[in-house]
Design a protein around this nucleic acid. Structure first.
Length: 677
DNA sequence: TTTATAGCGCAAATTTGTCG
DNA sequence: CGACAAATTTGCGCTATAAA
């Protein structure tokens, strides 16, 4: 039998996976065993059918099994299949069974292969860490330890661990801690104001997002073009990421964070203390809890002798996915209203039957995201419809060419933006709420769109406004974190460092134009993949197994999944109904808006209906006034100039403004939402 | 007691290296 | 090119162990 489907373990690497193809197997079979190939083709052909899909997949599979029976090294398909099964969380039993059928290599072989890959990756990561600038991101994972026999005192519990990734980024310019501390004193409330250029930018952003909605949802508008408000787009390149071994360290304590950092630096990356001299700075990214622990840890270790042990080098940065989730939560909370208020989120969600997933203690991010986007679309359409009617411009046919039409739409939308959105001056409460909702949603849309396209300039502008909004709600912890961020942008970091830090917030896994995602979301995806493998094992699987075989190969696993499912034509799990239901849902929301004359020009006829509607908080105003109240800012500045012997405690004035339960919920937020997807 | 599984030792299979 | 030895790899089967 042919010997050209041979694969050696030593020359198998992550890149082998993307090359795997059934066509290649067919070619090999045809050239090396033409007779068998012909026979197989003949046998698999369905009588009188031109559909050759079954033959296409069966011939290489059977051929590979035949080759495997002759030599256990002829395992081109079996090795990839084994890896696929492992990554999909198959148990040893499943793999043994399929090994018996000749479809995959044996379980120990997969184990050995993964150990080889891990060993190789470890060496590589040590090398790269010394050459290139990098940043670190880590997050907590909870493994659910299942116990099948439920009884009193034998409940399921959790195993805690930490996963980390090293990401190649840009160099930060060196800086000293004293400089940084001094710079905090220069923070003042005007740092949160917008200058003229920023106001103008926001106008263009608003126009962009409104026209995008019109293009997507109105017939005849798809040719309409509008300039993308581009500021500083990162080149669309695949980000180099190196998953690190997972650690059985509970990251939710200060001690745990210290151990995580030490393990990564010393054991995994093999760096000496001297590497951190000369003001070296490294971004350490994570969720809110992680970042705050890190700040606490830095305060705690002020007295240590070396920069390395003082953690001077660690620059904590909160990441965008968690910020985005919080923004969604704030908007939902602010415009929720009640079921009796027409046009409130509560009422709309009830109508669409989506209440359960959104208005709970632990809302699902994707449910919130979907609702907000649909309501946004409907509100934009309503606004357009109303202002077009007022100007008697419905008739689109009068425009001969697309350019003229496009220009006209751009002009009109800009008019709407200037009149309605940036300067809300409306008497009807529900219309005012809707306008405020639009304004805040534009920020949300802008954040997610800037992330997707990798524009760090737009992200910077958005985060600046978010810093204000977060001060309005009961989310002081995030608000303070963004204050840190803004302060560093304004007074601490130079241009090089600013760009490096902002770039570190995004990862591009595909290398495509729209392939960017927040760094923390990337880490959450990793955790999900690791769990996937883990849950195929029994509950008592030792953590070492993950460290030695799984966590460093997560990206390989993801690649295998993608490649195998493509090659074997597994149906993709994109939800096909989404588009249809979105359309009807948006239509339903629009109906409610029309019925209640929300955003309508003449407000008198419906005044009665609007009476019961409570006014939503103007988040931006509330945030600004919170900042203008000097107490908050001074407390913040003092704490960070003079240091604090306690750790992690924010200035005391937060206590009265937020009840402790709310705060505790925010803490949980990332746990709950990360499970979502 | 039965069952599942990770890990390990070991024999068999297979490849690689060497020599004439 | 073939024979033969050495080295490497594979996969079976056993054991310890935790869970059912």
């Amino acid at each position: 039998m042919d010997k050209h489907l041979h694969v050696e373990r030593s020359d198998f690497s992550a890149s082998s996976i993307s090359k795997f193809s059934v066509v290649h197997i067919n070619q090999r079979l045809e050239s090396k065993a033409p007779l068998i190939f012909k026979i197989l083709q003949g046998l698999t052909k369905k009588k009188g059918s031109t559909d050759n899909r079954q033959r296409f997949l069966a011939v290489p599979t059977i051929g590979s099994i035949l080759a495997f029976t002759q030599s256990n090294r002829a395992r081109y398909l079996q090795l990839t299949m084994g890896l696929y099964l492992y990554s999909a969380g198959c148990t040893r039993k499943v793999i043994d069974t399929l090994h018996g059928a000749g479809l995959c290599v044996s379980f120990p072989t997969i184990n050995r292969l993964l150990e080889n890959l891990t060993e190789h990756a470890l060496k590589n990561v040590k090398l790269v860490a010394k050459q290139d600038p990098w940043l670190l991101v880590y997050d907590n994972v909870n493994f659910f330890k299942r116990k099948y026999d439920q009884r009193i005192g034998n409940a399921d519990d959790f195993e805690n661990g930490t996963t980390a990734t090293m990401i190649i980024g840009k160099n930060l310019s060196p800086g000293s801690v004293h400089q940084i501390r001094d710079s905090y004193s220069r923070l003042c409330s005007t740092d949160f104001m917008m200058d003229e250029a920023e106001v103008d930018h926001l106008r263009h952003v608003s126009r962009f997002h409104i026209i995008e909605e019109l293009k997507k949802n109105l017939e005849g508008y798809s040719h309409c073009s509008t300039p993308t408000p581009e500021l500083h787009r990162l080149p669309a390149e695949r980000t180099k990421t190196f998953p690190l071994p997972s650690m059985k360290i509970d990251e939710s304590s200060l001690e745990g964070n210290k151990m995580v950092l030490e393990t990564v630096i010393q054991e995994v990356l093999g760096l000496e203390e001297g590497w951190f001299n000369a003001g070296k700075l490294v971004v350490v990214a994570g969720d809110l809890a992680t970042v705050r622990k890190l700040r606490g840890l830095k305060d705690l270790r002020l007295d240590e002798h070396s920069p390395y042990h003082r953690l001077d080098w660690a620059t904590p940065v909160t990441q965008l996915f968690h910020i985005q989730m919080l923004l969604a939560k704030i908007i939902v909370h602010n415009y929720r209203g009640s079921a009796s208020e027409q046009g409130s989120l509560e009422q709309l969600a009830t109508m669409l039957g989506r209440r359960k997933r959104i208005f709970t203690d632990n809302p699902e991010f994707h449910a919130m995201d979907e609702l907000l986007r649909h309501v946004f679309t409907a509100t934009v359409l309503r606004l357009w419809e109303v202002s077009m009617e007022a100007k008697e411009m419905q008739n689109l046919d009068i425009y001969s060419d697309n350019v003229a039409f496009s220009n006209h739409v751009n002009e009109k939308v800009m008019e709407i933006v200037d009149q309605n959105i940036n300067v809300p001056n409306i008497e009807s409460t529900s219309s005012r709420n809707a306008t405020l909702f639009l304004r805040d949603m534009i920020l949300y849309m802008e954040l997610s769109s800037a992330i997707k396209i990798g524009d760090i300039g737009r992200i910077e502008k958005t985060v600046k406004r978010l810093a204000v909004i977060f001060h309005a709600g009961s989310t002081p912890l995030y608000a303070y974190e963004l204050m840190h961020f803004l302060c560093c942008i304004k007074h601490v970091w130079d241009e090089q460092t600013k760009v490096a830090v902002l770039s570190s917030m995004l990862v591009n896994t595909s290398g495509g134009q729209y392939g960017w995602k927040p760094t923390d979301l990337y880490q959450e995806h990793h955790n999900r993949s690791i769990k996937h493998v883990y849950y195929g094992r029994r509950g008592d699987t030792p953590f070492d197994m993950l460290r030695e075989r799984v966590s460093m190969n997560i990206e390989t696993f993801d690649g295998v999944k993608e490649q195998m499912e493509k090659q074997f034509q597994a149906p993709s799990n994109k939800r096909k109904h989404a588009a249809v239901s979105a359309e009807t849902d948006i239509h339903d929301i629009l109906g409610i808006l029309r019925e209640n004359n929300i955003l309508g020009r003449d407000f008198n006829p419906c005044a009665q209906k609007n009476e019961g509607v409570a006014a939503a908080k103007d988040l931006f105003l509330a945030g600004t006034s919170a900042l203008q109240d000097k107490k908050r800012m001074r407390a913040f500045i003092n704490k960070h100039i003079y240091g604090n012997q306690g750790f992690g405690d924010e200035p005391e004035d937060t206590a009265q403004e937020s009840n402790p339960i709310e705060t505790a919920r925010d803490w949980q937020l990332e746990e709950d939402l990360s499970e979502g997807k």
